[in-house]
Protein backbone atom coordinates (compact mmCIF):
# COMPACT_ATOMS: atom_id res chain seq x y z
CA UNK A 1 0.00 0.00 0.00
CA UNK A 2 1.28 3.40 -0.91
CA UNK A 3 2.35 5.53 1.97
CA UNK A 4 1.20 9.03 1.24
CA UNK A 5 1.79 10.53 4.59
CA UNK A 6 1.98 14.07 5.72
CA UNK A 7 3.27 15.30 9.02
CA UNK A 8 0.52 15.91 11.51
CA UNK A 9 -0.42 19.41 12.52
CA UNK A 10 -0.69 19.29 16.27
CA UNK A 11 -2.58 22.10 17.87
CA UNK A 12 -4.88 20.78 20.58
CA UNK A 13 -3.50 20.36 24.08
CA UNK A 14 -4.66 17.35 26.02
CA UNK A 15 -4.54 16.56 29.70
CA UNK A 16 -2.54 13.53 30.71
CA UNK A 17 -4.85 10.50 30.70
CA UNK A 18 -2.20 8.44 32.48
CA UNK A 19 -2.65 10.19 35.83
CA UNK A 20 -4.94 8.41 38.34
CA UNK A 21 -7.49 10.26 40.46
CA UNK A 22 -7.81 9.27 44.15
CA UNK A 23 -11.02 7.53 45.29
CA UNK A 24 -11.99 6.36 48.76
CA UNK A 25 -13.47 2.94 49.54
CA UNK A 26 -16.93 3.47 51.00
CA UNK A 27 -18.30 -0.04 51.28
CA UNK A 28 -17.15 -3.59 50.68
CA UNK A 29 -19.39 -6.58 50.10
CA UNK A 30 -18.18 -10.14 49.82
CA UNK A 31 -19.73 -11.89 46.80
CA UNK A 32 -17.94 -15.25 46.82
CA UNK A 33 -14.88 -16.75 48.48
CA UNK A 34 -12.55 -14.62 46.35
CA UNK A 35 -14.71 -11.90 44.82
CA UNK A 36 -15.72 -8.58 46.36
CA UNK A 37 -17.83 -5.64 45.35
CA UNK A 38 -16.48 -2.22 46.26
CA UNK A 39 -18.19 1.14 46.32
CA UNK A 40 -15.84 4.06 45.88
CA UNK A 41 -16.33 7.81 46.04
CA UNK A 42 -14.06 10.51 44.67
CA UNK A 43 -12.16 12.50 47.30
CA UNK A 44 -13.18 15.69 45.56
CA UNK A 45 -16.81 14.54 45.29
CA UNK A 46 -16.78 14.43 41.51
CA UNK A 47 -19.37 12.29 39.77
CA UNK A 48 -18.40 9.38 37.59
CA UNK A 49 -20.58 9.17 34.48
CA UNK A 50 -19.96 6.04 32.43
CA UNK A 51 -21.64 3.81 29.89
CA UNK A 52 -22.54 0.18 30.70
CA UNK A 53 -19.68 -2.11 29.68
CA UNK A 54 -16.85 0.40 30.16
CA UNK A 55 -13.89 -0.23 32.42
CA UNK A 56 -11.48 1.63 34.67
CA UNK A 57 -7.84 1.24 35.50
CA UNK A 58 -7.58 0.82 39.27
CA UNK A 59 -4.27 1.73 40.88
CA UNK A 60 -3.00 0.61 44.23
CA UNK A 61 -0.29 2.88 45.54
CA UNK A 62 3.11 1.54 44.57
CA UNK A 63 1.74 -1.90 43.63
CA UNK A 64 0.33 -1.43 40.16
CA UNK A 65 -2.70 -1.03 38.04
CA UNK A 66 -5.39 -3.37 36.67
CA UNK A 67 -8.30 -3.01 34.27
CA UNK A 68 -11.64 -3.71 36.00
CA UNK A 69 -15.04 -3.25 34.44
CA UNK A 70 -17.55 -0.99 36.10
CA UNK A 71 -20.43 -2.88 37.68
CA UNK A 72 -22.56 -0.11 39.17
CA UNK A 73 -25.72 1.65 38.06
CA UNK A 74 -25.16 4.25 35.34
CA UNK A 75 -28.09 6.20 36.83
CA UNK A 76 -26.01 6.72 39.98
CA UNK A 77 -22.75 8.33 38.86
CA UNK A 78 -22.06 9.60 42.37
CA UNK A 79 -20.95 6.11 43.26
CA UNK A 80 -18.29 4.08 41.51
CA UNK A 81 -18.83 0.33 41.85
CA UNK A 82 -16.40 -2.44 40.93
CA UNK A 83 -16.58 -6.17 41.47
CA UNK A 84 -13.06 -7.55 41.77
CA UNK A 85 -11.81 -11.10 41.89
CA UNK A 86 -8.66 -11.61 43.91
CA UNK A 87 -6.52 -13.52 41.44
CA UNK A 88 -3.42 -11.46 40.69
CA UNK A 89 -0.65 -9.44 42.29
CA UNK A 90 -2.72 -6.26 42.15
CA UNK A 91 -6.26 -7.61 42.56
CA UNK A 92 -5.36 -9.55 45.71
CA UNK A 93 -4.29 -6.48 47.71
CA UNK A 94 -7.04 -4.41 46.02
CA UNK A 95 -9.57 -6.85 47.48
CA UNK A 96 -8.12 -6.39 50.95
CA UNK A 97 -8.96 -2.68 50.94
CA UNK A 98 -11.14 -1.47 53.82
CA UNK A 99 -13.57 1.43 53.97
CA UNK A 100 -11.54 4.63 54.10
CA UNK A 101 -8.65 3.25 52.05
CA UNK A 102 -7.64 5.18 48.96
CA UNK A 103 -7.06 3.86 45.48
CA UNK A 104 -6.36 5.56 42.15
CA UNK A 105 -8.82 5.52 39.25
CA UNK A 106 -8.34 6.25 35.57
CA UNK A 107 -11.29 6.03 33.27
CA UNK A 108 -13.88 5.30 32.11
CA UNK A 109 -12.45 3.65 29.00
CA UNK A 110 -13.67 1.62 26.09
CA UNK A 111 -16.83 0.82 24.23
CA UNK A 112 -20.16 -0.03 25.81
CA UNK A 113 -23.12 -2.38 25.51
CA UNK A 114 -25.53 -1.10 22.85
CA UNK A 115 -28.37 -0.52 25.32
CA UNK A 116 -29.71 2.54 23.50
CA UNK A 117 -29.47 1.04 20.02
CA UNK A 118 -31.24 -2.10 21.26
CA UNK A 119 -34.36 -0.20 22.28
CA UNK A 120 -37.41 -1.78 20.69
CA UNK A 121 -35.80 -5.20 20.65
CA UNK A 122 -35.93 -8.20 22.92
CA UNK A 123 -32.76 -8.58 24.98
CA UNK A 124 -30.98 -11.76 25.91
CA UNK A 125 -28.12 -11.41 28.33
CA UNK A 126 -25.82 -14.40 28.75
CA UNK A 127 -23.26 -14.23 31.55
CA UNK A 128 -20.72 -16.73 32.79
CA UNK A 129 -18.95 -16.56 36.15
CA UNK A 130 -17.62 -13.08 36.97
CA UNK A 131 -18.81 -12.06 33.49
CA UNK A 132 -22.00 -10.91 35.15
CA UNK A 133 -20.15 -7.91 36.61
CA UNK A 134 -19.59 -5.99 33.33
CA UNK A 135 -23.20 -6.77 32.35
CA UNK A 136 -24.81 -5.51 35.55
CA UNK A 137 -24.76 -1.83 34.47
CA UNK A 138 -26.54 -2.89 31.26
CA UNK A 139 -29.14 -4.79 33.31
CA UNK A 140 -29.68 -1.71 35.52
CA UNK A 141 -30.02 0.49 32.47
CA UNK A 142 -32.50 -1.84 30.80
CA UNK A 143 -34.58 -2.19 33.96
CA UNK A 144 -34.50 1.60 34.43
CA UNK A 145 -35.87 1.91 30.89
CA UNK A 146 -37.88 -1.30 30.91
CA UNK A 147 -40.68 0.08 28.76
CA UNK A 148 -38.36 0.58 25.83
CA UNK A 149 -37.62 -3.12 25.37
CA UNK A 150 -39.55 -6.24 24.46
CA UNK A 151 -38.88 -9.42 26.37
CA UNK A 152 -35.75 -9.39 28.52
CA UNK A 153 -33.97 -12.59 29.46
CA UNK A 154 -30.99 -13.04 31.74
CA UNK A 155 -29.16 -16.36 31.53
CA UNK A 156 -26.41 -16.84 34.06
CA UNK A 157 -24.06 -19.76 34.54
CA UNK A 158 -21.65 -20.31 37.40
CA UNK A 159 -19.53 -23.23 38.47
CA UNK A 160 -21.33 -23.79 41.76
CA UNK A 161 -24.06 -21.93 43.69
CA UNK A 162 -21.27 -20.49 45.85
CA UNK A 163 -19.59 -18.91 42.82
CA UNK A 164 -22.60 -16.78 41.86
CA UNK A 165 -22.35 -13.01 42.04
CA UNK A 166 -25.11 -10.67 43.23
CA UNK A 167 -27.26 -13.43 44.75
CA UNK A 168 -29.66 -11.04 46.45
CA UNK A 169 -30.20 -9.04 43.31
CA UNK A 170 -30.64 -12.16 41.23
CA UNK A 171 -33.40 -13.24 43.60
CA UNK A 172 -35.05 -9.82 43.28
CA UNK A 173 -34.80 -9.86 39.51
CA UNK A 174 -36.20 -13.35 39.43
CA UNK A 175 -39.23 -12.03 41.30
CA UNK A 176 -40.00 -9.51 38.56
CA UNK A 177 -42.63 -10.36 36.02
CA UNK A 178 -40.96 -8.38 33.25
CA UNK A 179 -37.69 -10.28 33.36
CA UNK A 180 -36.96 -13.96 32.70
CA UNK A 181 -34.02 -14.99 34.86
CA UNK A 182 -32.48 -18.44 34.47
CA UNK A 183 -29.46 -19.42 36.49
CA UNK A 184 -27.55 -22.63 36.10
CA UNK A 185 -24.57 -24.25 37.79
CA UNK A 186 -22.23 -26.99 36.64
CA UNK A 187 -23.07 -29.29 39.52
CA UNK A 188 -24.74 -28.93 42.90
CA UNK A 189 -26.09 -30.82 45.88
CA UNK A 190 -29.90 -30.88 45.99
CA UNK A 191 -29.89 -29.47 49.54
CA UNK A 192 -28.05 -26.30 48.48
CA UNK A 193 -29.56 -25.70 45.05
CA UNK A 194 -33.01 -26.03 43.55
CA UNK A 195 -32.26 -24.39 40.22
CA UNK A 196 -30.91 -25.56 36.89
CA UNK A 197 -27.88 -27.77 36.55
CA UNK A 198 -26.03 -27.75 33.26
CA UNK A 199 -23.86 -25.44 31.26
CA UNK A 200 -25.24 -21.96 30.50
CA UNK A 201 -25.60 -22.74 26.80
CA UNK A 202 -28.34 -25.28 27.60
CA UNK A 203 -30.55 -22.40 28.75
CA UNK A 204 -30.51 -20.74 25.36
CA UNK A 205 -32.85 -23.05 23.43
CA UNK A 206 -35.49 -22.54 26.14
CA UNK A 207 -35.18 -18.78 26.56
CA UNK A 208 -38.17 -16.73 25.43
CA UNK A 209 -37.19 -14.15 22.84
CA UNK A 210 -37.78 -13.43 19.19
CA UNK A 211 -34.57 -14.45 17.38
CA UNK A 212 -35.15 -11.93 14.62
CA UNK A 213 -35.67 -8.98 16.94
CA UNK A 214 -33.29 -9.59 19.80
CA UNK A 215 -29.98 -8.16 20.86
CA UNK A 216 -27.68 -10.56 22.68
CA UNK A 217 -25.16 -9.31 25.24
CA UNK A 218 -22.63 -11.98 26.15
CA UNK A 219 -19.86 -11.83 28.73
CA UNK A 220 -17.73 -14.49 30.32
CA UNK A 221 -14.50 -16.34 29.68
CA UNK A 222 -13.72 -16.58 25.97
CA UNK A 223 -14.59 -20.26 25.63
CA UNK A 224 -17.94 -19.71 27.31
CA UNK A 225 -18.66 -16.94 24.80
CA UNK A 226 -17.65 -19.17 21.89
CA UNK A 227 -20.16 -21.88 22.84
CA UNK A 228 -22.80 -19.30 23.66
CA UNK A 229 -22.49 -17.73 20.22
CA UNK A 230 -22.90 -21.16 18.61
CA UNK A 231 -26.17 -21.67 20.50
CA UNK A 232 -27.42 -18.19 19.68
CA UNK A 233 -26.65 -18.79 16.02
CA UNK A 234 -28.62 -22.04 16.23
CA UNK A 235 -31.56 -20.01 17.45
CA UNK A 236 -31.24 -17.95 14.29
CA UNK A 237 -29.43 -14.83 15.52
CA UNK A 238 -27.28 -13.01 12.99
CA UNK A 239 -23.72 -12.12 13.94
CA UNK A 240 -24.59 -8.44 14.09
CA UNK A 241 -27.19 -9.11 16.79
CA UNK A 242 -24.56 -10.51 19.15
CA UNK A 243 -22.25 -8.41 21.35
CA UNK A 244 -19.36 -9.79 23.36
CA UNK A 245 -16.89 -8.33 25.83
CA UNK A 246 -13.26 -9.24 25.20
CA UNK A 247 -10.44 -9.44 27.65
CA UNK A 248 -6.85 -8.67 26.76
CA UNK A 249 -3.86 -7.18 28.55
CA UNK A 250 -4.96 -3.57 28.98
CA UNK A 251 -2.10 -1.47 30.32
CA UNK A 252 -2.42 2.13 29.19
CA UNK A 253 -6.15 1.90 28.36
CA UNK A 254 -5.75 4.65 25.76
CA UNK A 255 -4.60 2.63 22.74
CA UNK A 256 -1.01 3.82 22.95
CA UNK A 257 0.89 0.96 24.58
CA UNK A 258 -0.08 -1.78 22.13
CA UNK A 259 -0.58 -4.53 24.69
CA UNK A 260 -4.26 -5.24 24.20
CA UNK A 261 -4.15 -5.61 20.45
CA UNK A 262 -6.60 -8.13 19.08
CA UNK A 263 -6.05 -8.36 15.35
CA UNK A 264 -6.64 -4.83 14.07
CA UNK A 265 -8.41 -3.79 17.28
CA UNK A 266 -7.22 -2.20 20.46
CA UNK A 267 -9.46 -3.84 23.04
CA UNK A 268 -9.12 -0.82 25.35
CA UNK A 269 -10.41 1.60 22.73
CA UNK A 270 -12.38 -0.35 20.11
CA UNK A 271 -13.59 -2.79 22.79
CA UNK A 272 -14.00 -4.28 25.28
CA UNK A 273 -17.52 -4.61 23.85
CA UNK A 274 -17.48 -5.74 20.22
CA UNK A 275 -20.30 -6.52 17.84
CA UNK A 276 -19.55 -10.11 16.98
CA UNK A 277 -19.46 -9.71 13.20
CA UNK A 278 -16.58 -7.25 13.62
CA UNK A 279 -14.31 -9.82 15.27
CA UNK A 280 -15.63 -13.11 14.00
CA UNK A 281 -12.73 -13.67 11.59
CA UNK A 282 -10.30 -13.78 14.48
CA UNK A 283 -12.56 -14.81 17.35
CA UNK A 284 -11.58 -18.23 18.63
CA UNK A 285 -8.46 -18.34 16.48
CA UNK A 286 -5.48 -19.50 18.47
CA UNK A 287 -3.05 -16.99 19.94
CA UNK A 288 -4.28 -13.88 18.15
Amino acid sequence: MAVTLKPQVITEVFTDPMVPVPYRVRRVRRETADTFTFEYEALDGRRFPFAPGQFNMLYLFGVGEVPISISGDPAHPELLVHTIRAVGTVTKPLCQAKPGDIIGVRGPFGSSWPVREAAGNDIVIVAGGVGLAPLRPAIYYILNHRGEYGRVVLLYGARTPGDMLYKKELAEWRGRFDLQVEVTVDAARPDEWQGNVGVVTTLIPRAHFDPHHVTALVCGPEIMMRFTILELQKRGLRDDQIYISMERNMKCAIALCGHCQYGPHFVCKDGPVFRFDRVKEIFGRREI
Partner: peptide, 14 residues
Protein backbone atom coordinates in the same frame (compact mmCIF):
# COMPACT_ATOMS: atom_id res chain seq x y z
CA UNK B 1 7.96 9.95 12.26
CA UNK B 2 4.76 10.63 10.29
CA UNK B 3 3.58 7.12 11.17
CA UNK B 4 4.27 7.66 14.86
CA UNK B 5 2.42 10.98 14.60
CA UNK B 6 -0.63 8.95 13.65
CA UNK B 7 -0.04 6.46 16.44
CA UNK B 8 0.42 9.01 19.19
CA UNK B 9 -1.62 12.03 18.20
CA UNK B 10 -4.28 11.08 15.74
CA UNK B 11 -6.69 8.98 17.77
CA UNK B 12 -9.07 9.56 20.60
CA UNK B 13 -6.12 9.95 22.92
CA UNK B 14 -2.85 11.76 22.53
Amino acid sequence: IFIQDRVFTNGKFT
